[in-house]
Design a protein around this nucleic acid. Structure first.
Lengths: 157, 157
DNA sequence: CATGCTTGTAAAGCTCCTTTACTCGAATGG
DNA sequence: CCATTCGAGTAAAGGAGCTTTACAAGCATG
């Protein structure tokens, strides 16, 4: 496994992955902001997706986001103040509270989803990248490294 | 540009990019830590690469890292205390100081570089991903979005 | 019914960054 | 020759977003 001394001057795979992720995420985020959500970060959209149609408790949310339940609680506090989620009585009782989305959050989910699809189509056109192929290879990589359920997506730096 | 209602249940490209980046970076980071650098984060390796053979001023480093010069200065302080860099007199004079790597940092660069190459080779074997193809597609994407010199790689969340 | 488990919350602290504000050294221009 | 200006570096405070520590509330289980 010696190192190839005259390999092409392509940047490292890791670097390319990071740049691609950052560039696409930034573009996505800007579009969502321009669509009327300048103060929602990716983690908020992620939260909306996790809560989805059925809602979840703060602790479940914490586990899915990969943060402490306190951090999730603070996130829910913030989103509740801004009218994106509600804490309702949990059917299973106990101290549990079911955090559910408001219509405002559902609208955001729709808009963000559309933006994501539009963006991916545009990327293929603008850059000439074969996005289905890219997806397939990335899926292989992710699946091979993390199995069927990947860990929470966290800021990595 | 209507949305495909029965598209395959593949995760979004953006999500796949994020997961792939996180998984590979985490694995890389763990290997570097295991090789004797448990307290060097990716940003430190990035700094070493930027300083490279010729060094740079804190302000240049700040620009390359995409942070304020104060943040870069704090980073240099830390690395200096730990023996990875030195502030030397700058040939151009002025208040400038040239930040240069010590041998310890150069050793780290070598080891991290080897780890990165080994990791990429292993990824291809373990996951069956076509890494050259992946590189090529990612390069297209990145180049198409950011041109010849991509912006600094920052934590994105 | 005491114990323990899980959820939720409160408060403090930590890390890494920015903002604000300043100093130092050199170049520029009258 | 000196005043101005300009860029590099630094110092201090503050903030965003998390964790750690600690505790209270509700339920299950022996």
């Amino acid at each position: 496994m010696t190192r190839d001394r005259d390999s092409p001057p392509t940047p490292e795979l890791l670097f390319l992955l990071g740049m691609a992720f950052q560039l696409v995420l930034t573009e996505f985020n800007e579009r969502v902001a321009a669509a009327g959500y300048p103060d929602l970060r990716p983690v908020h959209g992620m939260t909306f997706q996790i809560l989805g149609a059925e809602g979840a408790t703060s602790s479940e949310l914490a586990a899915r986001l990969g943060v402490t339940k306190q951090a999730a609680g603070q996130l829910v506090d913030d989103l509740e103040h801004r009218g994106y989620v509600l804490r309702t009585a949990h059917p299973a009782g106990g101290r549990r509270k079911l955090v559910v989305l408001t219509d405002a959050a559902r609208r955001h989910l729709d808009i963000a989803g559309d933006a994501l699809h539009d963006l991916e189509a545009e990327l293929a056109r603008r850059t000439g990248a074969d996005t289905p192929l890219l997806r397939a290879e990335l899926l292989r990589l992710v699946h091979g490294l993390a199995g069927d359920d990947p860990p929470p997506l966290r800021p990595v730096w």
